[in-house]
Each structure stands twice: as structure tokens, then as C-alpha cells.
Design a protein around this nucleic acid. Structure first.
Lengths: 133, 133
DNA sequence: ACAAGTACTTACCCCAAAGTATGTATCATG
DNA sequence: CATGATACATACTTTGGGGTAAGTACTTGT
């Protein structure tokens, strides 16, 4: 503790959290809003920049390219540009990117269970459940 | 596409992402810096507020309580307060909270592999496995 | 009477992520 | 020669998560 407050405590805390918490480490890499979505679409197969844009209409170009760059830096996707007349750029997952699939799947399973309410009133055996809405 | 810009596009995008992406759904619940860490500590057993504080020295009280409240609202932890002289409040995981452990574990495994560099140039060499949810 | 401990609450600030908008390079086509 | 398509880049603004600091309510110990 003490947290001397030199500057940018938030960044310092990030390092700490990342160092001691593998979950935070993962979050740093796929924690953006769009990252998992991009990953999801790329998991289904290689895609061009414009294909991703079409697949995720709500994302802005800035966000798309920004996250793609980050994913590339984090070694999760590979960018392949062909020096042709109209640019032709393809993105695909790396081994690390594919390695995230069990994580994604575990998340998805939990999410579906939680949405279905499979966890509600099960196993807690003695829950007053004071949900204040 | 048009994105009429009525108000707070970021929140609107969140809903969209959450609705179509289970991963984002999970992120919304355990995506804070401290959430996974708190969850991790609670996974090891029930803890009092002060015990959590001691277990995670770098966290501020505001963040701790704030995240605990959110986790409670999201039905991941249960708060039990005993109306005794010095307050005695215990936090423990719900069934849903415990249900996250496979997710956490999958993340941790990936993180360790990634940190070790197991994905670098190794390639899973035979990963078709395109899960389409 | 006052400090100390527990479990919070609240007001205020800062920064980085997310969003908006516009510009760039290249060539093909009308 | 202006428009459209592709794949970006970049300046600027907003928003909300996270951080700092201080206060509250209650009681026990000295």
C-alpha cells in the first residue's frame, strides 16, 4: 500500500494487477468492447478489413483499425497486405489467437447459463435473495 | 451505418455488443481491474470486507466496495451483514460466481502459455475448431 | 473525552478509451 | 477530372472508470 502517488497511479496499478493476476493479463488483450467481437468473427475464418467492417456495422473505422493494430501487437492476429491496386488486406488469427477459443467458449457457456437463469436459486440453498432491482 | 447520434452512443453500443456477444456480456460483469482479483480471493473462501482489504492492499476502499456492490447486483457475490456492535460483513460467491471458475481457469491457462511464449512460432499446427456458437 | 476500528459514503479530479469527423494514397471508371 | 472503392491516419471531443481524500455511525478501550 502507501501508493506513493508519483504519477499515473492507474497505470502502476495495471502493472501490478497484470503481474499478479493472469485474468487481468487476458483482459488487457481482449478487454476492449470490440476485441472479442473481432476475434469472434476472425475465429470463423480469415477476413478482409472491409469484410470485418460489414460484419460489425456498429464499429467505427477508427476503432476497428485501432483494435486490429493492438491485436496484431499482442500477437493475436496477423495482417497480410497484398500490394495490389486497390488495397487487399487480410486478417487472420495467430496460434495465440486460436488458443483463446477455449476461453471464449467458457465465457459463452457461462453467459448463456447466466442469461437463462440457470444459476438462480440453484445450489445457494439458503439465499434470501434480497434483490433490490 | 447512419448511427443517428441521438445520445451516448457508447452505451448504445454496449447494449448491442452485449446482446450479440456473450463474451462482452461476461466482460461487463468481470471486466473491471479489480473484479477478477476480488473474485479470485473470494473463490478461495468467504471473506470479510476488512480481510479483502488486507488481501488486496493496492485497492482503495471506494473501488473495493463499489465492485462488491456491482458483483452483488450481478448476482456473483452475496453480502451477509451481522447486526453486531462493530460491523461484521462477509462476502461469498454465489453459484453464478463459482460458475465462473472454469472461465477464470481457462484465462489463466492461456495467460501462462502466452507469457511463457508457448504460442510463439509453435502454432497449434492442427487447430480447425471453428466454434460458431 | 477521544482515539481507534469497522464498514461504508460522498464529493471531486484525472486520464485513457471510445466516438466524431475529416483527410490521405492509389487506381478504375464514367 | 471528379467520383468511388479500399485501407487506413489523425485531430479533436466526450465519457465514464478509476483514484484521492475526507466524512459518517456506532461502540469499545484508556
Amino acid at each position: 500500500m502507501a501508493a506513493v502517488k508519483e504519477q499515473s497511479t492507474i497505470q502502476a496499478n495495471k502493472r501490478i494487477a497484470q503481474a499478479e493476476c493472469p485474468v487481468t493479463y487476458v483482459m488487457e488483450k481482449i478487454g476492449g468492447y470490440w476485441k472479442p467481437i473481432i476475434l469472434y468473427h476472425l475465429a470463423a475464418g480469415d477476413k478482409r478489413y472491409s469484410e470485418l467492417k460489414k460484419a460489425i456495422p456498429a464499429i467505427t473505422e477508427k476503432m476497428l483499425i485501432q483494435h486490429l493494430k493492438q491485436l496484431e501487437q499482442d500477437n493475436l492476429v496477423i495482417r497480410e497486405a497484398r500490394p495490389v491496386v486497390p488495397p487487399y488486406v487480410t486478417y487472420r488469427l495467430t496460434a495465440a489467437g486460436h488458443g483463446l477459443q477455449p476461453v471464449i467458449r467458457a465465457m459463452a457457456e457461462w453467459a448463456f447459463k447466466d442469461i437463462k437463469g440457470s444459476f438462480k436459486e440453484k445450489a445457494t440453498r439458503k439465499s434470501k435473495a434480497a434483490i433490490a432491482a
